[in-house]
Design a binder for these strands. Structure first.
Lengths: 187, 187
DNA sequence: TGATCCATGTAAGGGGTTACATGATTTA
DNA sequence: TAAATCATGTAACCCCTTACATGGATCA
């Protein structure tokens, strides 16, 4: 699945500009996909060229013009077909795990820093999921059941991940403190 | 972090051929990195060209020759430096989550098939981790503590992930059965 | 007899990241 | 006054994926 198809997916839920789509990626897709402007804008141009979306330009006061994209029936068909033919893969590419795997080559202090950084990232992701979930809670714009499930799944997985790291972080912290104490005693 | 650096990492634990390294990726790294021959062989050639590894050819009976690579001191330094300068990122790219997010566009049967497929994949990953962990258990070749932690973290995270999916799968199954029953009643 | 294991590579193509380029407005 | 928000794009580069190419041995 490429960024083009994901843009089509976002547009299947309503009109949007490239800028809006980027924010959508950051808020709703952040737990399973990333994309920058450098891939979103060219994707939209291609989709328009292929007749899967249409584009209307809107002038604004004191703001750059915006290009608002709408999905076409052909685009909708194309997206549904893509969904039907997409195997449910789930790939992880983690430098964090690489650092753990080769942790014996790093100092305890460095390792603790790595865990702390990861915990900070996880906390940010958790907050993002909570915000996303709650923002959709009230009013009409509530999430589809499977979207809610997707968020719940990511949430529960992330929390289990965090708890295991938290325990290890504390163990490393204790180790560092012990070393400090014994160094102090020797002195 | 690229495949070149990871190859260096594998070689930091002992000599290996490109074929060995591929297996290493599949067994030990499968929960956080993937790489195929198409990226491993060119990486090794480059590493050799840059003096980070050396290569000796070994003839075999009834087998193709093998090229056994060894890391050099320069390669070891380069790897340590790469480790020190690698931020602990953790990226997910998941078509599975995409299918969930747009689940309202799919039939219940299709959704259940998606969850079943994902569960099968998770089960395979869990088995891989168990095999990896136990194979290193007995004898001298036991895992470094942080390697064991890396496996444990992946394991616990994966199990939480699986449990949440399992519950949803059963709910969907119940829904499918109910529909079947009401269809049967109407008939 | 067909699949899997061993073993090494090349080459084209695709897709995404990163950096660059521009510029007004609002907020801290 | 500096940073963030809004807003759109291009172009080079990098890296990886995929497919192709070869071929004997072993196992089911």
């Amino acid at each position: 699945m490429d960024v083009k198809t994901l843009c089509l997916g976002v547009l299947s839920e309503g009109d949007a500009t490239g800028y809006d789509i980027k924010k959508h990626f950051e808020c709703s897709f952040s737990h399973f996909f990333v994309a920058g402007f450098g891939s979103i804008y060219p994707s939209l141009a291609e989709l328009a060229r292929d007749g899967l979306v249409t584009c209307r330009e809107e002038a604004q006061d004191n703001r750059p013009d915006r290009k608002v994209y709408s999905i076409t029936p052909k685009g909708r068909d194309s997206f549904l077909e893509a969904l039907a033919n997409t195997p449910p893969r789930h790939k992880i590419r983690s430098e964090f795990f690489v650092l753990l795997h080769f942790g014996h080559l790093l100092s305890t202090a460095k390792l603790k820093a790595v865990l702390d950084q990861r915990l900070a990232d996880v906390e940010r992701d958790v907050t993002m999921l909570e915000t996303y979930f709650e923002s959709a809670e009230p009013g009409e714009c509530c999430l589809h059941p499977m979207q809610a499930f997707s968020v719940e799944l990511a949430y529960e997985t992330l929390k289990a991940h965090r708890d295991v790291i938290l325990r290890k972080r504390d163990a490393l912290q204790a180790e560092l403190s012990t070393n400090e104490t014994s160094r102090a005693r020797r002195a």
